[in-house]
Design a protein around this nucleic acid. Sequence first.
DNA 1: TGCCAGTTGGCATATACTGACATATACGAT
DNA 2: ATCGTATATGTCAGTATATGCCAACTGGCA
Lengths: 210, 210
Amino acid sequence: MEKHRESIAGRPQQKQLGLRQRKKAQTREAIEAVAFDLFSEQGFEQTTVEQMAERAMVSPRTFFRYFSSKEEVLFAGEREEIRRAGRLLEERGGQESLVESLEAILGSLASEYGLDRERRLIRARLISDHPALLSAYMGLMRDLEAEVAHFLARRLGETAAAEDVRLLAAVFVAVYRASIFQWADAGGKSELPDIIAANLKKLTGGLLRI
Amino acid sequence: MEKHRESIAGRPQQKQLGLRQRKKAQTREAIEAVAFDLFSEQGFEQTTVEQMAERAMVSPRTFFRYFSSKEEVLFAGEREEIRRAGRLLEERGGQESLVESLEAILGSLASEYGLDRERRLIRARLISDHPALLSAYMGLMRDLEAEVAHFLARRLGETAAAEDVRLLAAVFVAVYRASIFQWADAGGKSELPDIIAANLKKLTGGLLRI
DNA sequence: TGCCAGTTGGCATATACTGACATATACGAT
DNA sequence: ATCGTATATGTCAGTATATGCCAACTGGCA
């Protein structure tokens, strides 16, 4: 039951953080950990905010100070990864093709192991089981789309119209999402970055022209 | 204020329906109409179920017997169109290419005018204004994806792997969605089917290989 | 007519979420 | 070391969504 929290506790801590900040980070991680425990035990809907707050030893009011909604705690991890992808895309140079850049970044997004990997699988399973969560998840995908679109706009500059940028971003993210579920359906056995790369290759090949 | 309901009232009614069924259909449409009125007057969040029920002259309890949630009433129309697209795809023959079939169906989904067109624009504007609605909308897109995937599986038969079918469905729906917002951003001036066709053409051309 | 089934309203309740205020405590300055 | 302040948290009250239950009404039909 405590496995998530323990493995996190073993991670190297950021230094130079005051006690306040450390406690906050700890509380946040504690809530997230018990949330994933409860979700995988009872499912998402069956788990109440009250239960999560109880187990994490905070008041329900405090829960909402850390996560703006019940869905948020489920998706916070992936949301963070998306922000990271945005930063990585910022730095990405222009020697390679667009597809190569995206393949590298979307792939690296997915290459985390250990805790993140486990939670990613739990998340994918919950989403597959409960369609209502799909909506919230697709909202996340829209955020990723915005990051990708921003990157594309910068890389393509004046050469591409704004509509084409959004079209491309939508398509790339669709590939990313399809790849994740393809990976999760296979139980997480193969490597997600490989699946993403393969799917991108299929598209740039003639798959669309069947 | 009453314009939506009036224009609906002028539509030819299905016959052979008992009084009960007709009253039900009327109530449902009344709720939907006042909902769109209120949404475009005050925005989505500012409108409560109580208000909608009040104006539609039903109890809040009854509102939830017609629409399972507040979002549902906003998306019911598009959801119905998606079901219609599914039926149309069922009937579509095999003489044309996949892209041609999808172009025709997704296009016809979007070719309704009058009431549907107006509500579609209101919907798009609300979604653009309020990101929270985007999640719910993206959930709808996932339903459309399922319909498209079903169609693709039938048409491609054994020749394509299940993963490829889902990948293709995700990509096609991404194009559809990007096209809708491209259309709505332009104020609904150009023809949505044309935009969809153009975007599909761009993709089957070399856009991905930039 | 009178019964049956479907529809509705009203009430109670669970749950998600928010604002206001009070309290405790880490932090920074002396 | 300690004192004042900013920050984090808890408590409480309140709103909105959503659902179950039961009683009352009503259309459909024998």
